[in-house]
Simulated assay, not measured.
Amino acid sequence: MKHRIIYFLAFVALFSMLACNSKTKTTTQDQSSNSEKEYMVVAYVAGYRNFDFTSIDVSGITHINYAFGNIRNGEAVFDSTKIDGQGLSPEDLAELNGLKAKNPKLNVLISIGGWSWSKGFSDAALSEESRLKFAKSCATLVDVHNLDGIDLDWEYPNQIGAGNAYRKEDVRNFTLMLKAVREQLDLLAKTKGDEKHYLLTIATGADKTYVDNVEMAEIHKYLDFLNIMTYDFYNGHHKTTGHHSNLKASADAGFDMNSVVNAIDVHVNAGFPVEKINLGIPFYGRIWKGVENENNEVLFKKAETIGSGIDYADFYQNINANGYTRYWDENALAPYLWSPEERTFISYEDEESIQYKVDFMKKRGLAGVMFWEYSADHDKTLLNALVSELSK
């Protein structure tokens, strides 16, 4: 009996050791898999900007979202109506598809809506008939222009946005609209018989108000991923300076409109899978003039102007020569520029803040990043920093 007990204990010890080694091996493999993960890099390109799309460097980009398609008579359409005085052309989409010769894995989508063209969403989502009409038009648009999918940028369900129609029914109807579009894209693939999976994605607001008006726990069933617009926290509605894309809350959190961390948390807490979320990065800044100056303490101060948008390419060169001094908010992990002579404040993104955001994105388990928009950084300063950090 004693010998049997000894043999039994020896067997248990051997089994435990093998199990431990197996667990160690699995952990090592998991870590290796994580380090080799391919993150999404979703680039919005504005069709209304005077930019040569054939010059886009797609070596580090996985998806391009062309902005924008419109909604007319309840249908998603490619619209030649001008935005900011610039027209859009179907040739843009052909040029973007041509970039696949440089990157065969590139996906090209058209984004419907945006701030200016979201007026038709609520009506298009209102009934089963209207949703089917809209969904069919989305599939047709994808098919006609040989696209890889469609991105819906409704700004915003059950909110007025830029003077849009909105209803409390938007909350449920948005889910049903996404379901209808998903079904029509799948039907398109089946009809064509090419076994292609057409992508359906959305852009989302970064605050809790947006999340409270969308069924986050339901919509993920129909989406491949979403892109959170984690920018414009301080924007063109504010005559007070502030960070427009800070990773964390500043020291004086009472002044912060939002943060990247909070935006991710409210999405995940509402039921959207973290592994299907892309973090938004702005390739532009927000500029305030006539800012109150108290010993160069200019963050969260009154200004004479609102926070207008300004392309990164329009201010980043010769910052010091132009009279700006760069400051770093250690709590918010965000930079800003200040010119005492011009009394001008700029909130923006730079290489250091991108490093912190990418590190956070990896640790949090997100799918990748999105940025708005390519032509604002045509020298690729921010894009190169982004791709470099993602490869680490």
Score class of each variant (00 low, 15 high):
129 E>F: 02
163 G>N: 09
181 V>F: 07
239 K>H: 14
119 K>Y: 10
173 N>G: 02
158 N>D: 15
233 F>E: 07
124 A>N: 07
138 C>E: 03
196 K>N: 14
176 L>A: 10
207 D>W: 05
226 L>H: 13
225 F>A: 04
116 S>D: 11
170 D>E: 01
189 A>W: 02
189 A>T: 04
149 G>T: 11
172 R>P: 00
199 L>P: 02
186 D>A: 08
147 L>P: 11
127 S>E: 06
122 S>L: 03
198 Y>V: 04
177 M>Y: 01
139 A>Q: 01
177 M>R: 06
231 Y>R: 03
220 H>E: 04
208 K>G: 09
129 E>I: 04
242 G>H: 12
115 W>I: 01
247 L>H: 13
187 L>C: 00
146 N>I: 00
236 G>A: 07
141 L>Y: 12
193 G>V: 02
193 G>N: 06
174 F>V: 08
123 D>P: 02
175 T>G: 04
163 G>F: 11
228 I>R: 12
176 L>D: 06
114 G>E: 08
203 A>W: 06
232 D>C: 11
167 R>E: 11
148 D>R: 14
189 A>L: 04
136 K>D: 01
153 D>W: 07
189 A>N: 04
117 W>Y: 02
199 L>G: 06
200 L>G: 11
165 A>Q: 15
239 K>Q: 13
210 Y>A: 01
204 T>C: 15
222 Y>P: 09
164 N>D: 15
245 S>G: 15
210 Y>E: 06
136 K>H: 09
192 K>N: 14
210 Y>R: 10
195 E>P: 04
114 G>T: 02
118 S>N: 03
132 L>T: 13
192 K>G: 00
156 Y>C: 12
234 Y>P: 11
183 E>P: 07
156 Y>S: 14
211 V>S: 13
232 D>R: 13
205 G>I: 06
115 W>K: 02
182 R>W: 04
217 A>Y: 10
169 E>L: 12
223 L>E: 07
183 E>Y: 01
169 E>T: 15
206 A>M: 06
130 S>Q: 11
161 G>Y: 06
183 E>V: 02
228 I>Q: 10
181 V>R: 06
193 G>P: 12
177 M>K: 13
211 V>E: 00
129 E>Y: 05
240 T>W: 00
208 K>M: 12
205 G>D: 07
219 I>M: 11
246 N>T: 10
134 F>Y: 10
209 T>K: 15
150 I>G: 03
192 K>M: 03
225 F>M: 09
112 I>D: 00
184 Q>D: 09
137 S>H: 05
184 Q>A: 00
156 Y>Q: 12
162 A>C: 03
118 S>G: 07
168 K>R: 13
221 K>A: 06
244 H>C: 04
143 D>L: 01
224 D>M: 03
159 Q>G: 15
148 D>V: 06
220 H>T: 08
181 V>K: 03
202 I>T: 15
211 V>I: 15
146 N>L: 00
181 V>A: 03
165 A>F: 05
113 G>L: 01
210 Y>P: 14
215 E>Y: 12
173 N>C: 08
162 A>P: 02
211 V>M: 07
127 S>F: 03
183 E>I: 01
115 W>C: 08
113 G>A: 09
152 L>A: 08
223 L>Y: 06
213 N>D: 05
189 A>V: 01
236 G>D: 10
135 A>D: 08
239 K>P: 03
114 G>S: 10
154 W>Y: 15
147 L>D: 11
